[in-house]
Simulated assay, not measured.
Amino acid sequence: MSHQRALVLFAHGARAASWAAPFERLRDLTRAREPQVRVELAFLELMSPRLPELVAALTADGVNDITVVPVFLGQGGHVLRDLPLILDDLRVAYPQASIKVVEAAGENAAVLNALSDYCVAALESAPSN
């Protein structure tokens, strides 16, 4: 199947490979829900692919509509400063592609409500000491 659209889950990255496991599960769950969209995972640092590498590969494959979802809980320096600079460079390097970015996942009301539901449920499921 040829994908013309991509959804890029953008995470920080870490030295331990196991750190990426929840992000890989999120990618896989999202792929299952959106089979007509190419869903990929990219990292800011320490892991591959980095966002510029992934966008290069996507555009080489003919993907021209890219949405970036920062899977960060808050909008710290990486989301507020680093990501916009990376996106500016990518938009110059790949003018044929529409590269959009949405708010950090942790800034979204639905995500916060889901996390709150999980936290409240923890009151019932946590073992008693």
Rank of each mutant, 00 (worst) to 15 (best):
A42W: 04
V101Y: 07
L73F: 15
L41H: 12
G106V: 08
G106A: 07
L41M: 08
V37G: 00
A57L: 09
A32P: 00
D65F: 00
P35E: 01
V79M: 09
Q75H: 07
L44E: 06
L87T: 01
H12C: 12
G74E: 12
Y118I: 09
D88S: 12
A122F: 05
L115M: 11
E107W: 00
A60L: 04
R27Q: 15
H12D: 14
M1V: 09
Q75S: 15
Q96P: 00
L58K: 01
A122I: 04
D28E: 12
A126T: 11
C119K: 09
F72S: 11
H78P: 11
L90N: 03
A16C: 07
V69H: 12
L83E: 14
P95S: 12
V102N: 00
A11Q: 08
L87H: 02
I99L: 04
I66R: 06
L26Q: 05
S128I: 10
L115W: 14
L29S: 09
Q75T: 10
V101M: 12
Q96I: 04
E103R: 11
P49T: 02
L90M: 03
E103Q: 13
I66K: 05
N64C: 04
C119R: 09
A122V: 05
M1K: 13
V63T: 04
S125L: 11
L83Y: 15
R15Y: 05
L46E: 11
L26R: 05
D61F: 02
P95D: 10
P127Y: 15
E34H: 15
L51E: 00
A105M: 14
L9A: 03
R27A: 08
G77I: 08
R27H: 06
Y94P: 02
V69I: 10
E53G: 08
I66Q: 07
L123T: 10
T59K: 00
L90Q: 06
D117F: 05
E103Y: 04
Y94G: 00
C119M: 07
D61M: 01
A126V: 06
A6T: 03
F72Y: 15
K100G: 08
D88N: 15
V69F: 11
R25I: 07
R38K: 10
D82L: 08
G13C: 04
P127C: 09
V63C: 05
L29R: 11
L123S: 09
D65Y: 02
D117Q: 15
L29D: 13
A11K: 07
F23V: 11
A60T: 07
F23Y: 15
R5G: 01
H78S: 10
D28N: 09
L26F: 07
D89T: 12
Y94T: 02
A20Y: 14
D88C: 00
P52Q: 01
G74R: 10
I99R: 01
D82Y: 14
M47K: 04
R25F: 00
N108D: 15
R38Q: 11
